[in-house]
């Protein structure tokens, strides 16, 4: 381990990808890349908590079915979501009946689970590991904000939690997508307190992880075709860019944010500054970006999932918001040879 960056020497590969989301994401710019779209927020269930579990189950099943695997072909499950006691992951894991770790790292859960899964595979402890991540707009609103139907005006800096789930199956057998490095983030807290402006709070954490990554590997941003952050939104993205510029790293046009890829805030004003939530980086990366990596349209990408590790209780106790960002490098490889 090079300061904070892990290099996977033996080879960790993405064997399969599965994603599910609701109508809103389905109608968005990358809707056609998502495996399964549900018509509403209930996904055929009685309540939103069950709906989120269904999203996660669907994503995992989609991921496994593409390889004709069943649950028993998997060695280990790593999953994370936004809810209290990460109930979507825990209650889904109950169905799978596999060795399991649940992770709470807020919206950085996608890359946190992928990082740990890669460690297991690269270390030779497991052959096939599933990393699953989900979030649900209704569940997140209830937990972090107000009841969904409550009439409170949101500011333009607010973000919209993505309803969806993504799952990756990682293996040591060679495929077209290789995971080469992962950078584990540190908590960064610049004293922001506004839960309706997560972008400004998380941008320094994203910048910190990126700078550390570039330093650890002695590479420049130009080493990557694309660098994306998880859910910094229209507010946090330019801040992150500026923070990197101050340290002498010019991201230029190769930088984007998942929250602005999955929705188009210009077309859809309901999402305010952009998308957020665990599923924001998971669905965008697994469905859209990794498809491009698989096809070779993108050779090397660096995905930095950002998480605001806040709790409404702590916010009311006037605490500032601790933030974190974990980054993973995905690389295109030719299958033969």
């Amino acid at each position: 381990m090079n300061q904070q960056t892990l290099s996977f020497k033996h080879g960790v590969y993405v064997a399969s990808r599965g994603t599910a989301a609701s109508m809103k994401e389905g109608q968005g710019p990358i809707g056609s890349d998502i495996d399964q779209i549900f018509d509403d927020l209930y996904c055929g269930e009685k309540n939103w908590d069950q709906a989120e579990r269904t999203l996660m189950r669907t994503a995992v099943l989609q991921c496994l079915q593409k390889k004709k695997y069943t649950y028993s072909d998997v060695d280990l499950l790593l999953a994370g979501d936004l809810n209290n006691q990460i109930v979507a992951s825990n209650y889904f894991a109950r169905e799978m009946g596999l060795p399991y770790f649940g992770l709470f790292t807020a919206c950085s859960a996608s890359m946190a689970t992928v990082t740990l899964a890669s460690v297991f595979v690269d270390g030779g402890f497991a052959r096939r590991v599933v990393a699953a991540t989900s979030s649900h707009n209704g569940v997140a609103e209830r937990q972090f904000r107000n009841p969904t139907e409550y009439g409170a005006q949101k500011p333009p800096s607010a973000t919209f939690t993505v309803t969806g789930a993504g799952a990756l199956l990682l293996t040591n057998e060679r495929t077209k997508i290789r995971i080469t490095h992962a950078t584990i983030g540190k908590i960064v807290d610049m004293g922001m307190t506004d839960p309706n402006d997560m972008g400004s709070a998380m941008a320094p954490a994203a910048a910190d992880t990126m700078i550390q990554h570039f330093k650890d590997l002695s590479v420049a941003p130009s080493n990557y075709d694309l660098i994306v952050t998880g859910d910094l939104s229209g507010i946090g993205m330019p801040i992150c860019k500026k923070l990197l510029q101050e340290q002498g790293y010019d991201l230029g046009d190769r930088y984007d944010d998942c929250g602005l890829i999955i929705y188009d805030p210009k077309q859809d004003t309901e999402v305010f500054a952009g998308g957020s939530g665990c599923a924001c980086s998971a669905v965008t990366t697994y469905a859209h970006l990794l498809k491009k990596v698989e096809m070779g349209q993108l050779k090397k990408i660096f995905v930095v999932a950002t998480g605001a590790l806040m709790s409404p209780l702590m916010t009311q106790q006037k605490e500032t918001i601790p933030c974190i960002a974990h980054g993973v490098v995905f690389e295109h490889v030719e299958e033969s040879g």
Binding site: W48, R142, T148, G151
Partner: peptide, 20 residues
């Protein structure tokens, strides 16, 4: 939010939210 309708909304929305 200020008129009595806002008060009703705050109660109704919370009731709907926790129906489950």
């Amino acid at each position: 939010a200020v008129p009595v309708t806002g008060f009703a909304n705050s109660m109704a929305s919370a009731a709907i939210e926790h129906r489950s």
